[in-house]
Design a protein around this nucleic acid. Structure first.
Lengths: 344, 344
DNA sequence: TCCCGTCTTTGGACCGGTCCAATCCGTATT
DNA sequence: AATACGGATTGGACCGGTCCAAAGACGGGA
């Protein structure tokens, strides 16, 4: 029978009284100490069951000076790869009895700063910064106070804070090379409008184009990272002069937008236009979209970041700097050789 | 300057000492009491700044016997409408200084039960159950102990726990009626394989079919709620005898799967096959998919559920029972009249 | 029978806050 | 000058746990 209606829930002292022992002994039993007599152990466990006792985590956190919680700061749960990355984080944290406190800078109307403030006050045992987000003094201060790691973002350069991500330069190079190898020359890029990840992908696009002797065909159109943004940017590119035969988009969402634009303009994909996205989200895997894309290994990035955070929480603060995982190209149905090489 | 490296962070007592007042006064200042002299207030605030003091939320929660946190139990963050619903919840909770603790039964490999256990132990101030999930004794017990509301699920019948959802019967009727009005007669249904929501939608499909004199054309194919599931179920329906001219899917994900199946089988949508989904997720809004679907008002459902939970936390436990919001049909490009009425 | 060592059990300080009854102090009233 | 009063300030109990030094119990050896 649980706590009497209205009355306060049972505490460790009620259990002790009910079992006829001291609260210290109850604590020992509950934490599985080996040096408790069988008789007492049973008496305590019986009392726990009879009273419906549940330990109060808040109180435990106070004395342990640990909340067994890590704060995860991200900025848009709608973007599917976040979920992938979270699963990676969670698989590790869960195995170590740590909860995740999600703060979505967008879901939450609180700014990232307010969320970070909350992490500091709880306080959480550690913090993970996931994905592109603006730097801020509060975040920097939190990172100096709390064990912190960065996942899937290249925006931060915080002292002693390790960064886990996929190698965006390499990934973008894979995408462009794939298109070039297919015979494309007019390869344009839908670039993200802010954040280091977008910048790296764009730079690598340009560099790879040049490496393939396609420097003169470099063409960058900015967009935000949504379907809508990709759509609009693609319309601009596809209705202008010297229409590209291939498009490398900064992420899958934008790539889907480009796909929509092509369809609307009556341009066949991949017949007349090849598309490559980035992230290998489930969007790209949907058969009806079936985008060639770059797998950014977000799950594994999440796992690695989580492991590193555990190390830091335990006081092993080694391995700052960048830890890049190799991305992989996933070829699906949105890319093909250009229709007629002669026309390009 | 924040806490000395390695040393413990400042507490309310350090601040008191530094400011030359009692800790009680510091507490008063920090909570904005009006009856503190200006001189003392300033002294305290100066000390706070100088020491870089941050109140410890864990300690406050212990004495207040509130964690200012609500537990949100859901089961698949990958399904986009969850995010929508979460935003609704959050918009209300945030305005009342409540954090959300997300427990994703799937993201988390812990079962729902372990998560619920965690909610009870923290303890959270209240609990929201979002979406279809299996009933369980632990959840029922938690719901009896904590202020609880259900959002977007019809599976629970817990005493005194209000349910907020869209009217699934009505929504399914809207979908079927739309197809029937377009002239379709062979309207099949991709049904979810478990959960009360799936059952309601299926029952309403059948009922509406009969109401339109189409009882003999009722055809239900089970699938899970993923793209893959929808794809497979649609393939079965579309390759069998008496191919339907329209499909009403239990949700958008399954509907996208059906779209893929149609494409693969060379069946034009909406020319030869009309499709209607459910949820109006951003998937349906993607131009290249552009699914006709039923808007389940998840944001508003979330808001209402959150408001009700606030009431319960405050001790006003009125309004148990179901609170259904009217869904709305969103007509896009996946539905059209059947090509030739004579062939149907 | 007494002493000692080992294993079990206990009391009480502590974590960092909130809150309330009691005290302090300056001023107005008689 | 003594009394009363009201606002400012304080000490200490309390929230529900953990942890540690010390006390208690018990059995074996002298």
């Amino acid at each position: 029978m649980p706590a009497a209606r209205g009355g306060r829930p049972p505490t460790i002292r009620s259990v002790a009284e009910h079992a006829g022992v001291s609260k210290s002994l109850v604590s020992l039993v509950l934490r599985g100490s080996p040096r408790v007599s069988e008789a007492r152990r049973r008496a305590v466990l019986d009392a726990v069951r009879e009273l419906g006792y549940r330990p109060n985590a808040t109180a435990r956190h106070l004395t342990e000076r640990r909340s067994h919680t890590v704060g995860v700061l991200l900025n848009d749960l709608r973007n599917p790869w976040f979920v992938e990355c979270l699963e990676g984080l969670n698989s590790v944290f869960h195995a170590h009895d740590l909860r995740m406190f999600l703060g979505d800078g967008r879901l939450d109307r609180r700014t990232d700063e307010a969320l970070t403030q909350g992490f500091l006050e709880l306080p959480v045992d550690g913090m993970v910064l996931v994905g592109t987000m603006p730097e801020s003094a509060v975040i920097a201060e939190a990172a100096a106070t709390l064990p912190t790691v960065v996942a899937s973002s290249r925006d931060f350069d915080l002292p002693g804070v390790p960064v886990f991500a996929n190698d965006d330069r390499h990934g973008a190079a894979l995408a462009v090379r794939h298109l070039a190898d297919l015979g494309h020359r007019h390869i344009a890029h839908l670039a993200g409008s802010f954040g280091a990840v977008a910048r790296l992908r764009r730079e690598s696009y340009e560099q790879t184009m040049r490496a393939h002797g396609l420097g003169e065909h470099i063409r960058v159109e900015r967009c935000d990272l949504t379907e809508e943004g990709g759509y609009r940017a693609a319309v601009r590119l596809l209705t202008g002069p010297r229409r590209p035969t291939a498009l490398f988009a900064v992420n899958d969402m934008a790539c889907v937008g480009a796909l929509s634009a092509a369809e609307e303009l009556g341009i066949a994909v991949p017949g007349e236009l090849s598309l490559v996205g980035y992230d290998n989200t489930y969007l790209a895997r949907i058969r009806h979209l079936s985008l060639t894309t770059v797998d950014n290994a977000s799950h594994e990035v999440g796992r690695n970041a989580a492991k590193a955070l555990l190390d830091r929480i335990a006081g092993r603060a080694d391995g700052a700097g960048e830890h890049l995982l190799p991305p992989e190209l996933r070829i699906r149905s949105s890319t093909a050789p250009p229709t007629r090489l002669t026309t390009s």
